[in-house]
Design a binder for these strands. Structure first.
Length: 432
RNA sequence: GGCCCCAUCGUCUAGUGGUCUAGGACACUAGGUUCUCAUCCUAGAAACCAGGGUUCGAGUCCCUGUGGGGUCACCA
């Protein structure tokens, strides 16, 4: 039985790196007939850095991405819990004292320190092959702090033993911790789990992603209008490649095809340019009704759902992020009319009394794209201006922008009264 | 600096000794479609870090160098 875990610290928000590690752990656990267990353990042993709400943020972030865990602090304790390290202090003390009794550790100013054996440490990494450290590298290190909390290396090893973790899949930055952990397994005469060290996600400076400078908070991705499926897909593509070279695939497919053989060891740059494209692909894959709901929720239900549904077909191929709905179609949903733009030299001919009365003569009941095309075409001929210019001025006048969805469709949705009001306003402002 | 990891187009990557005059995707450029923008279609530019080996043959194996990264806490 495969058992894997992620072990984030609740020190703030859900980090995209945590999601990345979780994704690969999840895929590995569920890959084999879906029978592996994916465990969430909270390493809250740095009392000073624990932040309230951080735990919930982690749950939220992972759930948003569809990465569900089988065991964790929010679930029944079961035979392996509790899953918060702060609730396992007694256990760590017992195990540390065992080492003390066997003279494999010693007390040092209120802390307990592990006595290094000086042996070379080697393991066969699932992603990188053989990795070895010279024995002198591991010095005596603290395993139990004077406040009674375990250090990372100790807590992780004890829990991995007790929780029967079979595979430790984590970031590359933990490679240098592995010899210390291996020494601990040896001291307890326990077989160590298999290790797989994933590449670290980097920023444009090729440095490991930083909380300070890089967009790493999962909530921010949601706020920017990314779909969780798209983010997951993007994350899959960092360090892993689809055997058929596919770029767009869902979590289920990733899980099914996952293999460490296809994981690269070089650290990829987390460049969201491609994520924007992937997100657009997912938006275009979503049907109108579902997409309208997503936008509606994204807008915190500020606009009528029916209105959003009406607009979606006009913008679905124009947006890569949900947020772009507003820049594209804001003029159709906002109460306040936009400031008109006069975009061509033939404005006065385009937005003329003739144009407006032509539209005015079209009754509400016949206010649809087909008739609008006809009427606007006639108005354009009367104005005697270039078609592009004609529509451009209508665009600028009713939308206050030179980039909008198609004009006749937009006018249909805007409605007769509002359209004519805006055209009149534009005409008036222009002549001033 | 010690130790460790890594190295193919700007970015994500394919490639497990010959089919590589190195393939795909994003981004970019040009053109087509079009009332703008986008979608869509077509084309284009763009990479094996360097030097030594091994081999009939190296992007692929080995060594060295260079470059990048990680880590050296009573943080995780």
């Amino acid at each position: 039985m495969i058992r894997v875990r992620i072990a984030p610290s609740p020190t703030g928000f859900a980090h995209v790196g945590t999601a990345y590690t979780a994704l690969f752990n999840y895929a590995f656990a569920k890959n084999k007939k879906n029978e592996g267990k994916f465990i969430l353990r909270l390493e809250d042993t740095d009392v000073k850095r624990n932040v309230k709400g951080a735990e919930e943020a982690i749950y939220e972030g992972l759930s948003w991405l569809g990465l569900s865990w089988d065991e964790g602090p929010d679930k029944d304790k079961g035979e392996y819990g509790p899953y918060r390290q702060s609730e396992r202090l007694k256990t760590y003390r017992e195990w540390a004292e065992r080492l003390l009794k066997e003279k494999k550790a010693y007390e040092d100013e209120g802390a307990i320190r592990f006595k290094n054996t000086g042996k070379d440490m080697v393991w066969d990494d699932l992603i990188r092959g053989k990795i070895s450290f010279p024995g002198g590298e591991v010095t005596d290190f603290v395993i139990l702090k004077s406040d009674g909390y375990p250090t990372y290396n100790f807590g992780a090893v004890i829990d991995d033993i007790l929780m029967e973790i079979t595979h430790v899949i984590r970031g590359e930055e933990h490679i240098s911790n592995t010899p210390r952990q291996l020494a601990l397994y040896t001291a307890f005469a326990k077989a160590h789990p298999k290790f797989a060290h994933l590449p670290t996600l980097r920023n444009k400076d090729r440095k490991k992603l930083s909380k300070r400078r890089d967009p790493v908070d999962l909530r921010v991705f949601r706020e920017k209008g990314y779909l969780p499926e798209a983010l997951v897909n993007f994350l899959c593509l960092l360090g892993w490649s689809h055997p058929q070279g596919k770029e767009i695939f869902d979590l289920e497919e990733f899980v099914r095809l996952f293999d460490f053989k296809r994981v690269r060891s070089a650290g990829p740059i987390f460049d969201t340019t491609k994520l924007d494209w992937i997100n657009g692909e997912y938006i275009r894959k979503t049907n109108n009704d579902s997409l309208a709901k997503l936008v509606w929720e994204y807008a915190e239900r500020k606009y009528p759902l029916e209105k959003v549904e009406e607009i979606i077909p006009l913008v679905r191929e124009r947006m890569n992020k949900l947020s772009e709905f507003f820049t594209l179609a804001g003029f159709l949903v906002e109460e306040k009319p936009p400031k008109p733009l006069f975009l061509t030299d033939s404005y006065s001919a385009n937005i003329s009394g003739a144009t407006i009365s032509k539209l005015n003569n079209l009754p509400e009941s016949r206010w649809n794209k087909q008739n609008l095309d006809k009427v606007l075409g006639e108005a354009n001929r009367m104005a005697g201006t270039a078609t592009g210019d004609f529509f451009m001025d209508i665009r600028g006048t009713i939308a206050g922008s030179s980039v909008t969805p198609p004009i006749t469709e937009s006018i249909e949705i805007l409605g007769k009264k509002e359209t004519i009001d805006r055209l009149k306003t534009g005409q008036k402002k222009f002549s001033k």
